[in-house]
Design a binder for these strands. Structure first.
Lengths: 336, 336
DNA sequence: ATTTTTTACCAAAACCTTTTTAAAAACGAA
DNA sequence: TTCGTTTTTAAAAAGGTTTTGGTAAAAAAT
């Protein structure tokens, strides 16, 4: 229990026989300093193992080197894939990550973001949910850079990497139609996550285009684990009528799939099934899940680049539109 | 661009016509204050939407309300499940989470933990990897509470929730033996994650106990995506001799499984396969993966409770030993 | 040689809180 | 009135940085 006192800039200054200000300037390159003094300071830093106190730095300066990440559910492979990539990139930029899991709950989002602001975060990366608007407003009020991934509400001014969810829903449904399905149902988590609503729009559009009038939309009432939702709703899909199912996320689709397999439903002969996201396990599961692939890598990279540009004060593109892609695997028939 | 100035304690004090000290006492319950004044202060806080500046608080006080989470890989469902549970619990305690993904790289761990310390974190939760010892030492030097999940090196004094990895490896191997396998190989990521080494000890022990001399241990040379490792090493397992495979993680097992299926290997008839972790997808894949289940919930809950106790200065149990469980599914034959 | 500019450095203020100190005010009780 | 107790206050220090304004010396210009 020796409880080391942290060595301060003052200690470094004393050892190097310079003023605190000079130490600060050496560290931050914020003023010219002679080679001789600089190396004396650097030596002292090394000798003492000095690490700047970020709290003090953040208190005095305008921000810390922290970035807030808001996701609904870290356990969902789609989001954990995003977080993984973001961490890789931001680590190289020497940023530290605050992680918040919100379940898409607006109260929780707001609470989290307020606390983050009080920590003087440098920026925020947010995956969209309906409640964002307050959060975005708050961030804007404080002038904190921010990027929204995956989608965006209405006419906001916030930079966004949008993935066309409507097109994705359209793609999925059209594929089911082309593979012979005529009674296609959609099953989804609650629409608090707006992208889901857009996916369902795409679904409707594809049906309309094909002149199909049958439509069945199953929504979970309360937010809960997506896998659970799929598993529970599946029974309502085995009604002898439905011959195609569009699940608005892979994780949910797997719940449906599991129940289907338990009930002896033949996939894709009896019912075709397509998911959304293309999470890693779609590659390994049998039957492999047909799905709509989100450009996670690209989105993460563009997103961080946009955020970093904002932080550095550079002007940059405010809006990117990325397209999802159809991945046909084993849970739907090949297009005929 | 209206760049709101953050409202300070001083503003609150002015509005409530009291001193700053009183505001502080109201907020922290650090001194008695009359009902009348208290409510005046609370009103002012609400009116101004005041949020304490955690940086200043952390700088002055001994710590912030942040907890650092160190995991090797957030994308691995095992770790994301842990993080999910930890977040749920710690949110209720009003803690904020720093997330660090380390890939088990000791340099990176050390770098991260130094920065976290400079942020005056209140505690840390760490999933074990070989390099921890420096990290643990550092935390101890600064008197920062800490809990290690899953395992622990040597004779450390740090509180730990240990899951008997040796027993898990033993269980897995014994099950393979009982289901008829005689040439059992083990395939694993590099042993920088020590628990893996222990699992392999268990494997050897089970072989010895059954009097089996055949043994084949395949280790990845470099750390990389576990799925990849499994996929690549699989070919070395299809040698006409091996009839059982113990993969030291599910994610890796899935890589093996995928390659096996591609090559037309019959599971479990030709080769039995068992994984480790019991991540969510084991339930949905076909064939469903036999595996060793980690008590993730229990571990997370015990772990946070231990950490919180330390933070509050309470004495508490320093060591728990949890047992993994065998889950027999479709990639191994039922015990005969 | 004198003035101006530049360079290299320093001392002190500021950031926002908590905590401490000394003192003032309010109040009931003796 | 006087004493003791409780509540509140003002003021200041501490925590470790960044930043501002300034000074002294060196270099350049006159």
């Amino acid at each position: 229990m020796n409880m080391k006192r942290t060595t301060t800039m003052h200690d470094v200054a004393k050892l190097a026989c310079v003023s605190q200000a000079t130490v600060s300037h050496v560290i931050n390159n914020s003023a010219p300093v002679s080679e001789e003094v600089r190396s004396r300071v650097l030596d002292a830093i090394k000798t003492l193992g000095y690490v700047p106190n970020f709290l003090a730095k953040g208190l005095k300066g305008s921000s810390t080197n922290t970035i807030a990440l808001l996701v609904p559910e870290i356990n969902n492979p789609y989001y954990s894939a995003i977080v993984k990539r973001l961490e890789e990139i931001l680590r190289k930029e020497n940023k530290l990550l605050f992680l918040a899991c919100t379940s898409g709950d607006s109260q929780r989002e707001l609470q989290y973001i307020k606390e983050f602001i009080s920590y003087n975060i440098q920026g925020a990366i947010i995956t969209y949910s309906l409640s964002n608007s307050h959060v975005l407003q708050l961030l804007q009020d404080y002038g904190i850079p921010c990027v929204v991934l995956d989608d965006i509400p209405g006419k906001s001014e916030v930079p966004v990497i949008e993935i066309s969810n409507e097109y994705g829903g359209y793609l999925a449904t059209k594929h089911l139609i082309q593979s012979g399905c005529r009674h296609i149902a959609v099953v989804s988590e609650p629409l608090v996550k707006l992208p889901l609503a857009k996916r369902i729009c795409g679904y409707s559009k594809a049906l309309a285009e094909a002149g199909i009038t049958y439509s069945k939309i199953l929504l979970a009432d309360a937010p809960q684990d997506a896998f659970e939702i799929g598993y529970r709703k599946a029974d309502q899909l085995i009604d002898g009528e439905v011959d195609g199912v569009f699940a608005t996320s892979d994780y949910l689709a797997y719940g449906v799939l599991r129940r289907f397999l338990e009930c002896g439903v033949k996939i894709p002969e009896d019912i075709g099934l397509i998911g959304y996201d293309d999470v890693a396990m779609t590659q390994v599961s049998r039957p492999a899940l047909s799905t709509i692939a989100q450009p996670i890598q690209e989105m993460s990279e563009l997103g961080t680049r946009m955020l970093l540009n904002q932080i550095k004060g550079k002007e940059a593109e405010k809006h990117y539109l990325l397209q999802p892609e159809l991945r046909i695997r084993d849970t739907t028939a090949q297009d005929t």
